[in-house]
């Protein structure tokens, strides 16, 4: 599968969605996109045929503010009609700016306030074990989200109960809402923290499709532990003037910037 081509097309789509709606968080969406592509096109096996099945994998976008990337991926997967993407974050839309359960078939958990998704994922992982289902739960968190104490409550719980069917992915672009993670609240040593909480950890380049798919195909990394993938990413990835810039956590491209971004992605 030509991940590069898919990623290029979806980046354009996402930038147009943000330009039209003036919606925030385009930088976060571009940071997460490649991870979402690998999940949906290689790992999860969620599509129109399997979405109704009980024994399929589940995905939770705990960093709900990156939902524009998820909408674009779901549309590409045929789980959401592409025409709705134009209605992202405008009045009367069914596609609001954070994950809202029930709006779109593929969005199964409401998120937006950080630090909720991992606990919910742990509950789902428990239920799967109880019911003897072998499928897995994947939860994508942001780096700033790891400031929330509830993330570590969930991490401790999942480690204690050896939830090997729970996989967390950290989109570690090193920029949170008001500054660099290093300056706001340093997460390092992040790998050691997860290991100390009973998780098995792998670090990857979050924009390298080969690496991402190789690692995500190999979960659980340890059969008696939950797995976490620390994905090193770049905020605003793919558009030179957005990359690594805090302001694209909030701004949306104007007409000129939209043209420039689309030209870069040709």
């Amino acid at each position: 599968m030509d991940y590069q081509a898919i990623a290029k097309g979806l980046r354009k789509q996402i930038i147009m969605m943000h330009a039209k709606s003036n919606g925030s968080h385009v930088g976060s969406a571009l940071s997460s996109l490649d991870i979402l592509i690998v999940l949906y096109f290689c790992i999860l096996k969620i599509d129109r045929a399997t979405i109704g099945s009980k024994n399929r994998n589940t995905f939770i976008l705990s960093k709900g503010h990156a939902v524009s990337a998820l909408y674009a991926v779901l549309a590409k997967k045929g789980l959401l009609a592409g025409k709705y993407l134009k209605r992202y974050c405008i009045n009367k839309t069914g596609l609001p700016g954070h994950c809202t359960k029930g709006c779109v078939k593929g969005i199964e958990v409401s998120t937006g306030s950080l630090g909720h998704g991992l606990s919910i994922g742990a509950g789902m992982a428990l239920a799967k074990k109880h019911d003897g289902l072998r499928s897995k739960i994947f939860v994508l968190l942001s780096d700033g989200e790891c400031d929330e104490g509830s993330v570590w409550e969930a991490a401790m719980f999942a480690g204690h109960h050896k939830l090997n069917n729970l996989i967390a992915i950290i989109d570690y672009n090193k920029i949170q809402a008001f500054g660099r993670t290093k300056e706001v609240l340093d997460l390092e040593p992040l790998k050691d923290k997860w290991e100390a909480f009973g998780w098995s950890v792998k670090e990857v380049n979050g924009h390298n499709f080969k690496e991402l798919s190789r690692v995500l195909k190999n979960v659980p990394f340890n059969n008696s532990k939950p797995s976490v993938v620390i994905a090193h990413t770049i905020k605003g990835k793919g558009v030179s003037f957005m990359e690594n810039k805090l302001e694209w956590h909030y701004r949306s491209p104007d007409n000129e910037q939209l043209k420039m971004a689309l030209r870069e992605l040709e």
Partner: peptide
């Protein structure tokens, strides 16, 4: 949160 995941 865990209760929510179980309920879902």
């Amino acid at each position: 949160g865990v209760a929510a995941g179980l309920a879902l």
